[in-house]
Amino acid sequence: MAKVFLYNTIRFCVLVALQVFLFKNMGYYNLATPFPYILFVLLLPVGIPNFVLYCLAFLTGITVDAFYDTLGVNAAACAALAWGRILFIRITLQSDQHENYMTPLLGTVPFRWYFLYVSLTTLFHHSVLFMLETFTFHHFHYTITRIFLSCIFTVVIILLFSLLFYRKKQR
């Protein structure tokens, strides 16, 4: 339990720092901007109470927002992300697995599940994020392009991270 707490704290600090100091400056012509900090929210233990999950997601979003000078945009997207995560886990995992403190990390879960989990929730997060950022339906196809390209970018980075810390079957 304490270990889970410690790991998540470290993960939070590292991911947010990477996001605001490194990934903020990365991008492909304003079309694709990665937001891999959402990995923190994705990797919170499966059995976490919903309210705690929302609070942590909101906190993460607000922290990133503070650095991006876009108060609320990332927080809203993270709230959406938390909801998407809850829905996805409820649909795909058996109920007994809900209760434990397993971290849904590659190695403890099958790759296919992990890939689907990451890409769907990322898509959800990015849709909300970019819609809120542009806040208009003008140039809609441009927004859509940004969402998809950024989504691919983020998913690739998240998968790279996961492979970097891959440990075989620690169950």
Partner: peptide, 25 residues
């Protein structure tokens, strides 16, 4: 449906912040 209601609360608050604090929005 607590997940949904929490979502509405948090999301609503965040959007409120967005509209309040970002001049463009």
């Amino acid at each position: 449906y607590n997940a949904f209601f929490f979502f509405v609360i948090f999301f609503g608050y965040a959007v409120y912040l967005v509209v309040q604090n970002n001049s463009f929005q």
